[in-house]
Design a protein around this nucleic acid. Structure first.
Lengths: 338, 338
DNA sequence: TAAGATGCTGCAATCGCTTGCATGTAGAAT
DNA sequence: ATTCTACATGCAAGCGATTGCAGCATCTTA
């Protein structure tokens, strides 16, 4: 099966011009007379001409596309980020290519390298929960691939980053639990590798300190696979319950829903007695039972900001030396009264 | 910023061979001696050579990538389909490019045409709820672009299609409501344009007929935008409630969650009195309150089957004339007892 | 010994597009 | 009349890879 379209050559032949003239006319260059431009444009329109982006990429050594790596598109937070990315990218005539790491380091690396070989002009990435070694990213970056990290960012990597105010988000959520009378607040969180894990733990601790509640390490449970496996979550819940928490603060979208699910499944009788607060961008929280207090990240905006930074890197004339880390505020949505 | 990689030319120069020999060696062609092949392969490995897929695409007029169009990746059903697609595509060395129509015809057409111009080798598409005119797809298809439809398929388009057994799924859900004693069952559904809308309506009707319940057209409400706008849903709910339904059967993922949300928001007192059954692939249904009976589609499998069919079309030596429409069974997950 | 067979390698065209440079024309300035 | 400028257009190389065809050894066979 072969796919046919008209090329610049066809137009040139039909109009008795050279391909260079046609190309320049289409790109609206000053060398070409208005008359010729009109002629070419009209004809191109007529035959529904579409420049072959592949050929253009080859010639210009860029593809006008940016790669995205997230752990899972099924995650509300990430799909909202992607929508934000698309909203900016399309405006600026970039196309996006989405890949999922499924929280696997191996998959992440494979996908990034595939994208890089496909001549993406830049990369937007939130690291997988397994990822510790980012040398492969450093090496691509050193070869000239612009990279912007969002949400899950590495330390010691000098480039633009966009994150939520994880500290404050966690602090607020934990404080909210405390103010509603809870004193034994567990913390269920992601892999220790992740930046967000550390930041959110700090927020949680700070709130405890403010209200003179002792921090107990045993109340903190890490999920290596970010809640991808339900067994992992059920195990964590099982270990927490004997400590009789009256509140749980959960630090990621998937963990939050997963934890409630695990609670309901393994200990339905206590599920309603424990106050839950957690990071989630689900637009279905209002339907949840037990209900919960949620920390919403500005996902869409995060995608937009990251994309703007990335495009500025891609289009920069000279190497960039000043990098920013943008921090966006989260929003606390308190549990509906019952 | 420029991204540097070694090319076939570099290898040729380094090894004192011609580019053609290197190319053939890399592709393991019979003309090249084992010795030379080993030499080339070893060196390529050493410099971490990656063929430039862009150049290859230009030459071969194909890209080893397939395009996907769905209305929204944030929709569980679609993200599961995408996972199914990826699972097959990657195995067969194809890359996937995902685009969202956001239920807009214009966006859908734009995205498809963009993908086509990027030399995708084939297209997997679920039509947007707005789409009525598919001439643009016919024209691409006529030019040689293989297309496989899934979920939302057009009539009068001869190609492979993969759908769920919508009739049976709807029948089962409606029957379930009837068997639990409901007699005034409303039906909230998508745009009339969609294939799934018609098929699901038929299943609903058939169940009513079986139990000698009169079909009342005023109990059926269509949502033109597939629940993308909450106002649309709230309006539909507002119009239905005066008819005092004791059950609602809802025909799509987004509508199902949206409808419950609208019910809760506008009429919390009746929300729990109406039995709800609906199509949804959300993995969070267990958390919902009010709870509901759900019809789950075999999303992952649908993606797999569609991809296999598409790849068979792409790789077919001769034009295909026999097309199949695969129908996959849905699963009814009954509401938890309360 | 000459002619053919076989195995290995290189030349050069091609995919569609962009762009530096050369060319050609017309009118303005000297 | 000559030189200069401005404007309009075309030639041809090149992006990286693939591949038909030709060339050149070396070996067989009559």
């Amino acid at each position: 099966m072969r796919f046919e379209t008209s090329t610049i050559k066809d137009i040139a032949k039909a109009l008795g011009l050279s391909t260079s003239t046609v190309s320049r006319a289409l790109r609206d260059r000053y060398e070409i007379s208005e008359e010729t431009k009109k002629l070419v444009l009209a004809y191109a329109e007529k035959v529904n001409y579409r420049a072959n982006p592949i050929a253009r990429s080859l010639k210009e050594r860029r593809s006008y596309s940016i790669g995205i790596i997230v752990s899972e598109i099924a995650n509300n937070f990430f799909s909202q980020v992607i929508n934000g990315i698309e909203s900016i990218a399309y405006d600026r005539d970039y196309h996006v290519i989405i890949s999922q790491s499924h929280e696997s380091y191996k998959q992440e690396k494979l996908n990034v390298e595939h994208l890089a070989s496909r001549s993406i002009d830049g990369l937007l990435i939130a690291l997988s929960s397994e990822t510790q070694d980012i040398d492969y990213l450093r090496s691509l970056y050193a070869k000239g691939l612009p990279i912007v990290f969002f949400d899950r960012v590495p330390k010691d990597f000098e480039t633009h980053k966009v994150i939520a105010n994880n500290f404050k988000g966690s602090f607020d959520a934990t404080e909210h639990l405390i103010l509603s009378g809870k004193r034994t607040i567990a913390h269920l969180t992601n892999s220790e590798n992740l930046s967000i894990t550390k930041e959110r733990l700090e927020g949680y601790k700070a709130a405890l300190v403010k209200y003179h509640i002792e921090f107990k390490p045993e109340l903190v449970k890490y999920c290596q696979h970010g809640g991808m496996h339900s067994a992992e979550l059920e195990q964590a819940v099982k270990e927490l319950l004997p400590l009789n928490p009256d509140g749980i603060f959960i630090s990621s979208d998937r963990l939050t829903t997963g934890c409630i699910m695990a609670l309901k499944k393994t200990n339905p009788e206590v599920a309603h007695k424990i106050a839950i607060a957690g990071f989630t961008n689900s637009n279905l929280v209002e339907l949840f039972n037990p209900s919960l207090t949620s920390v919403k990240q500005p996902a869409f905006e995060m995608g937009q900001v990251a994309t703007e930074l990335l495009i500025s890197m891609i289009e920069a004339k000279r190497p960039i030396t000043e990098f920013e880390t943008k921090v966006l505020d989260t929003e606390l949505v308190k549990m509906a009264k019952r």
